[in-house]
Nucleic acid binder design. Structure first.
Lengths: 346, 346
DNA sequence: CTGAAAGCGCTAACAA
DNA sequence: TTGTTAGCGCTTTCAG
């Protein structure tokens, strides 16, 4: 182990080490102006004589000056930091949300701070509350906490929510309907008339929504829907649903998410069931790796990355009082047809 | 689209809205003490009369007081924020590093700020430099920038690096050797005497290291190693290497990373080659989804999560001048044998 | 054990 | 256009 870790104390070059605590006072002195002039020159170009400004910028450059965000935050009350709260970093659906949110934040010159709650709603609220003090706004991704808690946070600072609908709070949710309609149509087109559904955690807003919309759509399409017992939204959860799926007599199954679908496929295949010859499988989300399976998973893709991006952009719009248009953002879920679906068995 | 987004302005409850700007002055007034006493009571319990302390805590509670991290950072110079720089959020190997780093940071009461450089070394340095001002320390995950740039950052604030060795900078790297030895032994045990290697980006420190160590080990084991052309460390890159692999005459192939291995398998299988009957495939990293393939991928697991965790813990040890022991951290790479390897073909 | 006062680095009136 | 001044919320001497 010791060999794996190389440790060294950098030689302390005073010149550079000092660069860390260069203040506008230093810059001001070098440029021969007042500190407040430095502040102006650097922050609102134009409000200062062009040549002095140049002189100041030069001085800042040679001194390797960088503002101290904390010091700036104090008088202004703005930190240029936005928060992102995810309930479980372990969950691959958040990867894309994080990506999107990070992209939008960076695009607007904001720094992203990240926290996770390890699936505990209490911890989630507490950490969000702590984080709130240092951010200009906060994005909640598929939060676990109660509507009341979210509303309480939203009263203090701008808050947005992705993947859940909360009254009076900026909520960005995908158009689940669209992908479900496509999936049902797809399966019906393949001759499936009885399909099973493996639901996710009943307490999750999104899980309920997917279940309800699917039930609705199947009824509308005159397709028999067998809703099985809820399972954990994991590969293991999916495996545990395999017998129920097989016994359901359905020729196709839709899972609450890809993880469940993948576990299901694994277990089914190991039991000698062929996919899609015997049973077609459809997932939800299109997480990273959904196409690694064989057959690759047909799934209802959720616009996770776009949702994260758009939600963050909208949040920052609130923060900076800027209008953010939804143009260029498509939050529709869409069916991605791969190999795990095929003609109905009988 | 408009339907997807629910927008509402929360009712402004002054009572709670105010809670955001509760200061120690408010608490002091309510508790009938001096602000400095509040500060003491809250920060160093014991240095204040037990009953006054209780009174102060009670006041803070009723007022819903939370410290302002910015205001605290100014006099102390410490922000309780640590930075994490990743070169590409898109790359699944970083997921685990982020997880580990986040866990370690949270464990120590630090908040994590995240930034990515989109694979650009210039942007990476610039963003790191910007971030440096607001953090107490910074972790660089598989950085793209030069040793000089890293050293320059390390002169200003505590810096640690994961997955790369930089002189005089706290570097945490996995024990690549171990897993490679296991893999070579595993393949030799299966009768493979000629194996191919698909290298990653030649400029990457880790890519070079893996290549060198593998070559060394194969020579040591009297196994013929055919090093093919470098490819992009992606699924597409892997697919593009398929013909070269087939033509190499090797009965087994090791890829620089799992993404390449997965792409390779996909392309190989589509060409009618059976895995592992015709060719055995070994990946590197054990990323999320490596076991979704069929056959599931045999791979040299890199302790990504542990590495992120340990590196962050070690960094924070530096920051707080605390000794951090490496106990409980195992940074060895290990072979995870799954289905993609089997007895040599001929 | 607690109060008074100075100051962290920056911004934002207000003057000049 | 630029300088002066006060203060953001907190910590930390220094007195008492």
């Amino acid at each position: 182990m010791a060999d794996d870790i190389a440790v060294g104390s950098p030689a302390e070059s005073e010149a550079v080490r000092a660069s860390e605590s260069v203040t506008i006072y230093d810059v001001a002195k070098l440029a021969g102006v007042n500190p407040s002039t430095v502040s102006r020159a650097l922050n609102r170009p134009g409000r200062v004589n062009a040549v002095t400004e140049r002189r100041i910028r030069a001085a800042a450059e040679t001194l390797n000056y960088h503002v101290n965000p904390m010091a700036r935050a104090l008088p202004t009350g703005r930190t240029s930091i936005v928060g992102l709260v995810v309930s479980d970093i372990t969950n691959p659906v958040f990867f894309d949300v994080i990506r999107g949110a990070e992209a939008a934040a960076t695009r607007s010159g904001y720094t992203l701070v990240l926290t996770e709650s390890e699936e505990s709603d209490e911890r989630e609220y507490e950490r969000a509350q702590r984080m709130l003090r240092m951010v200009d706004g906060m994005l909640l991704a598929t939060p676990r906490m109660s509507d009341e808690q979210i509303t309480a946070l939203a009263r203090q600072k701008p808050v947005a929510v992705v993947n859940r609908l909360v009254d009076d709070v900026l909520s960005v949710i995908p158009d689940v309907q669209h992908g479900i309609a496509e999936a049902v149509r797809h399966l019906r087109g393949l001759g499936h008339s009885r399909i099973a559904y493996v639901p996710g955690p009943p307490l999750s807003w999104m899980a309920r929504r997917r279940g309800e919309l699917l039930a609705q759509r199947c009824e509308w399409a005159h397709i028999e829907l067998a809703t099985l017992d809820s399972v954990a939204p994991t590969v293991a959860g999916g495996r545990s649903a395999a017998v129920a799926v097989r016994d359901s007599g359905a020729t196709a199954v839709i899972a609450y998410n890809d993880l469940i679908a993948i576990g299901l496929m694994q277990e089914l295949v190991e039991t000698g069931i062929r996919i899609p010859a015997d049973i077609s499988v459809v997932g939800f989300d299109d997480i990273f790796g959904a196409d690694f399976t064989s057959p690759p998973l047909t799934t209802i893709k959720s616009p996770l990355r776009e949702g994260g991006d758009y939600a963050m952009a909208a949040l920052l719009g609130r923060v900076t009082d800027t209008e953010v248009s939804a143009d260029g953002f498509d939050l529709a879920t869409t069916l991605v047809v791969r190999g795990s679906t095929g003609p109905a068995a009988r």
